[in-house]
Write a protein that binds this DNA or RNA. Structure first.
Lengths: 143, 143
DNA sequence: AGCATAGCGTGCGCCGCGCACGCATATCCG
DNA sequence: CGGATATGCGTGCGCGGCGCACGCTATGCT
């Protein structure tokens, strides 16, 4: 039964890599945001202002990569570099209002997409599935 | 509610990219198989012998990439290049017995991993979740 | 004060990837 | 039946992202 999940997961991932989901999601989403910068943007929205090193660990990328992507986003006006008030070495990456708006729009777009694909499901089943998926991810094998 | 799924999916994907899941899965799995070659191996196991072009479309990669990865796997003795009997231009990529064994072992390893992480779930809930996940992927927004 | 440590940005080298070319074969059409 | 076009394959090339390491600044500990 774990085998069923593994198989479904495999298929899901096959279509959801950077070149799949993130590329399609961010296609035509404006200046500076693409399949590479999106994870940074999204991670930042998820946890609020964070240091580059923190974000790097979160995204599973090298710190330098996060820095560079953040610079792209900064140039596009979606991310701001604020000095950390408690540590003058650190700079906190923060979403600008525009950045917040963009990421919110993208998330809504994805959510709509998913909701739409669940149109034919009984509502209670869909809700149960959502809850279980959340739980699976939270407890899941990829913690 | 699609929003819940989207969020969970985002978290899931964040940890399941090539550098995450596939890397950890194939770590120490033997010569020639790593996070890059695994998708080729796995896709081949899923659909049987196929041409490189077909596989490329399946994996969402350029044909040249598939060719190169297949060469790696061939050198490791996991994949064989058979001439297509119906078309002398084409070469069918085929898993060797050793290749079958390796991919089976990897899948079992992943399945065990997942099953293990569902230990605390009521069995019927887990089964229902597996079925729903399969359905979601089949009908899903990333067809 | 002084040394070890942590955070940041940047230059460098590696490597995967997409593009395009050349070659072999197959198919189509006159 | 034969030339033209199309398809499949492997490979060379250039681009670009990424990890590593360096230099710099700031911090903390003794």
């Amino acid at each position: 039964m774990g085998r069923d999940i593994a198989e479904a997961l495999g298929l899901l991932l096959k279509r959801s890599t950077r070149v799949g989901l993130h590329r399609r999601l961010t296609d035509g989403a404006g200046e500076g945001v693409d399949e590479l910068t999106y994870p940074v943007l999204s991670g930042l929205a998820r946890t609020g202002p964070r240091s580059a090193a923190d974000l790097a660990h979160e995204v599973g990328l090298d710190r330098s990569g996060v820095t560079r992507r953040a610079s792209t986003l900064e140039a596009a006006g979606l991310v701001r570099r604020d000095p950390d008030p408690t540590d003058r070495r650190a700079t906190l990456l923060t979403l600008t209002d525009e950045g917040e708006r963009v990421v919110a729009a993208l998330r809504e777009r994805l959510a709509d997409h998913i909701t739409d694909s669940l149109r034919s499901w009984p509502p209670d089943e869909a809700a149960a599935f959502a809850a279980q998926l959340r739980r699976f991810v939270a407890e899941g094998p990829f913690g």
